[in-house]
Design a binder for these strands. Structure first.
Length: 580
RNA sequence: UGGGCCGUCGACUAAUGGUAGGUCAAGUGCCUUUGGAGCACUUUGUCUAGGUUCGAAUCCUAGCGGCCCAGCCA
């Protein structure tokens, strides 16, 4: 492969490894791709292919921020014919669980990626231990008896250098003995650590003799009780990369300060020189992407679980109805850089609409029913009218929709006193019922509270199907459902989980939970759906015409489907109305 | 205030010393049996000040602003 070819990647990938690669489009340049092109050109790693890895810690569910990392790790490697491992960074047994491992694998697959090797940092515990022994023998690591608190005090501050531990000058023999006994479980948690001997005066705090191993008498989800000492991230991550011969190790910006340490271990161990590259973490308005905070929402039952459709987790947005392709397109479009910024949620929603617009069958559903009686329509008559399934996709075909004398329309679609620019049904106004007839509102029936409970209309039999033989026009088309044939359904309308663009923007003393939007979920118990939806399978997606995209929730029961609103359609009228 | 990183339309991101472009958002119009979709058009940007250069978003200097780092978390 020549450098010239590399500089303009093909628009489609020849690899069939990932579903995601099939839809690949020309991507804008970014600094990591540039580095790969350069490294291939200069044969930095000889003839080795690009090797990346996606390294989640199994201590929570993956979210949309991880999707960006996944698309980068897998996408970039795939683009250059390279490989990507899924590696669980499981060095902290106290926080990690098999449930998270399972969910992560499921989510990566759902996104459309297939890893080459499935790896665990815990698979390397033995090798890591041997390397620690080597560093001790080389006089580059020592066992420290200081307490956590004392270590902290010795570390110094941002502006003052640290002080050396009194245990820093132990001999390799003594360190070897102590480290061995740490491993054997002779010491309680927290009594000793193994530290790298680097520089207590470094302006980079990560280089001030960082802890490599701590004692933790805890069962590990994979290694059980085999170990009671566990490596720290900094001592495990780079070496794991090295073992897997990762060429380009991508991580987020906050690890920039760790790179010198990453390189220190590589150099002093003399192992495969993986190179770390840091990119900007994804931030989205009205969204929290912190595992700690998402965990809190779950644990305190502020949401229904990790897969609550309001959660930014991949399981949440999947349940909400987002498609993997939409998420991938989004990730490709937002690019990657070293700038810390916040993307507008609207950007994500755009890609969801764009994808669903192409694939979601159209269907009619009335969320807030208002009864309409067609006075001049024959009692008891039912017509089966033709409706097209997807105007964006001719192959989607047509279906029959029953029409009768009594219908439901949306309450929003009738106004007794229409405001300016309101084109929908109102007294004396003629509109089109989609795929049916032109109707004209004649009168209303109100209850004791003065609310409109029924609208009486007449229809023009000559407009069957929705066209007038005299070519007269109507200003609007509204959707409807035949009352007698309607399917009763629960519909869950989701909105942003948080009321503020920055959920962390709180008053003194308040927590981010104060910004939770109490209206983020509105449940409609009895929406009226066209009968074709009776057997819609879980996770199937539809466009409810003029309303938005909806998908079938797993809570659905036979005869009583539950639909989630994925995202509303863009609403020009709402905009006009809001402006006044 | 020590160190690291970063400043381009409202948001995100290109331009790799040579025309500041794309996407989202916003607005206008066209079209429409979804006030959807689509199409067309429009508005708005190189943090500041110096310097180098025929030419600077890009290189240099100095400011200013933002983010990250003092876990035996990752």
């Amino acid at each position: 492969m020549s450098a010239a070819n590399l500089s303009s990647p093909p628009s489609g990938s020849s690899s069939t490894k990932s579903a995601a690669s099939a839809a690949a489009e020309p991507r804008p340049s970014n600094f990591i791709r540039d580095a790969m092109i350069e490294d291939l050109k200069t044969k930095k790693y000889g003839d080795a292919v690009i090797q990346t890895r996606f390294p989640p810690e199994p201590n929570g569910y993956l979210h949309i921020g991880h999707a960006k990392a996944i698309c980068l790790d897998f996408g970039l490697a795939d683009e250059f014919g390279g490989k990507t491992n899924l590696r669980f960074d499981d060095t902290n047994p106290e926080k990690e669980e098999q449930e998270y491992v399972d969910s992560i694998m499921k989510d990566v697959h759902w996104l459309g990626f297939e890893w080459d090797d499935l790896c665990y940092a815990s698979d390397y515990f033995g090798q890591l231990y041997e390397w620690a022994v080597k560093l001790i023998k080389d006089g580059k690591a020592y066992v420290d008896d200081l307490s956590a608190e004392e270590i902290r005090q010795h570390r110094g501050t941002l502006t003052e250098p640290g002080k050396q531990s009194p245990y820093r000058s132990r001999t390799p023999e003594e360190n070897l003995d102590l480290f061995e006994r740490m491993r054997k479980g002779e010491f309680p948690d927290g009594t000793r650590v193994l530290r790298a001997k680097i520089d207590m005066a470094s302006p980079n705090l990560n280089m001030r003799d960082p802890v490599m191993y701590r004692i933790l008498h805890a069962d590990h989800h994979r290694t059980g009780s085999k170990w009671c000492i566990y490596p720290m991230y900094d001592y495990a991550h780079g070496q794991s990369d090295s073992i897997e011969r990762v060429t380009h190790s991508m991580c987020t910006l906050e690890f920039e300060d760790h790179r010198p340490l990453y390189n220190w271990f590589v150099q002093n161990l003399g192992i495969f020189p993986s190179q770390q590259y840091e990119f900007d973490r994804l931030s989205l308005t009205y969204t929290l992407l912190s595992k700690r905070r998402l965990l809190k929402l779950v644990q305190e039952n502020l949401v229904r679980g990790w897969d609550d459709p309001r959660m930014p987790t991949l399981s949440g947005i999947r349940r909400r109805g987002y498609t993997a392709e939409a998420v991938r397109n989004f990730c490709a479009a937002i690019g990657v850089s070293k700038t810390n910024g916040t993307l507008e949620l609207a950007m994500l929603e755009h890609f969801v609409r764009e994808d669903l617009n192409k694939r979601a069958p159209r269907v009619m559903a009335v969320l807030r029913p208002l009864k309409v009686v067609i006075d001049n329509y024959p009692d008891g008559q039912v017509e089966e009218l033709d409706a097209v399934n997807n105007p964006e996709d001719e192959t989607a075909g047509t279906r029959k929709v029953p029409f009768s004398k009594v219908l439901y329309i949306e309450q929003d679609d009738f106004r007794e006193e229409p405001p300016k620019k309101y084109y929908r049904l109102s007294p004396g106004v003629e509109v089109r019922l989609r795929y049916a007839y032109f109707i004209t509102a004649k009168s209303v029936v109100k209850n004791e509270q003065g609310e409109i409970v029924e609208v009486h209309c007449t229809y023009d039999p000559a407009t069957r199907g929705g066209n007038a033989p005299d070519a007269r026009k109507v200003k609007s088309t509204i959707h409807w459902v035949s009352a007698e044939h309607a399917l009763d359904a629960e519909v869950r309308l989701y909105d942003k989980l948080f009321a503020k663009p920055d959920p962390n923007d709180v008053e003194e003393g308040q927590e981010f939970t104060a910004n939770l939007d109490p209206n983020s979920l509105e449940t409609i118990a009895h929406a009226k759906l066209e009968p074709s939806l009776a057997d819609a399978p879980v996770e199937s997606r539809y466009q409810f015409e003029r309303l938005g995209y909806f998908c079938v929730d797993p809570d659905s029961k036979p005869g009583k489907p539950v639909f989630n609103r994925t995202v509303a359609l863009k609403d020009a009228w709402a905009k006009i109305e809001k402006r006044g």
